[in-house]
Design a protein around this nucleic acid. Structure first.
Lengths: 85, 85
DNA sequence: TAGATATTTAGACAATTATCTAAATAATAG
DNA sequence: CTATTATTTAGATAATTGTCTAAATATCTA
């Protein structure tokens, strides 16, 4: 749970998620939306991966990142469960 | 948005929210659930206040903290809007 | 195999954060 | 008015985090 909320607590990481909502992308594609280095992006992606928010799949030279939508359902439930309603 | 997610990104603060879900409490009542100092608790409460997640109301000597439930609805919508579905 | 492209890992650094103790402020009770 | 209780503020410190550059690893192509 901590891993999850900490992953969401960074604006750049939330932006990555929004970007991936449109379509799967490689690291370099994602990178065009940001100013920081590839290493930094890699670090953010790692945090999102650990939080189970994205999935990485290598295809040859490239690694495709996608939203782990199944987890979003769970996240949503957890969220409602903790706080709500 | 950042203020909100950062507020939620700490386990102790989420615990505070869960505690307040049961009923409103004063700082010292909340404090019994934790090991850290009153100053630290005050700091966490401040962060939750800034994130609009709790409301503080002084009654004489005491300050009563309560969940700002109206905001939870908004938070939930925002959450669904960003990530979901 | 060598060179190019894609991505991650390692190590460093500055900014932020969670915590503490001590002191300050607010309100009540004697 | 003074002492007591409730809470916050100030200032310090250690841990965590976001970022960087440089180097390492993985894959493809010539």
């Amino acid at each position: 749970m901590d891993t999850l909320f900490k992953a969401l607590a960074d604006q750049n990481r939330r932006k990555i998620l929004e970007i991936l909502k449109k379509r799967d992308m490689t690291v370099n594609e994602i990178r065009k939306y940001f100013r920081f280095s590839g290493a930094t992006l890699s670090h953010h992606l790692d945090i999102l991966k650990r939080a189970n928010l994205v999935i990485a799949q290598r295809e040859g030279q490239f690694i495709h990142y996608s939203l782990n939508t199944s987890v979003f359902e769970e996240v949503l439930k957890t969220f409602i469960n903790i706080f709500g309603r």
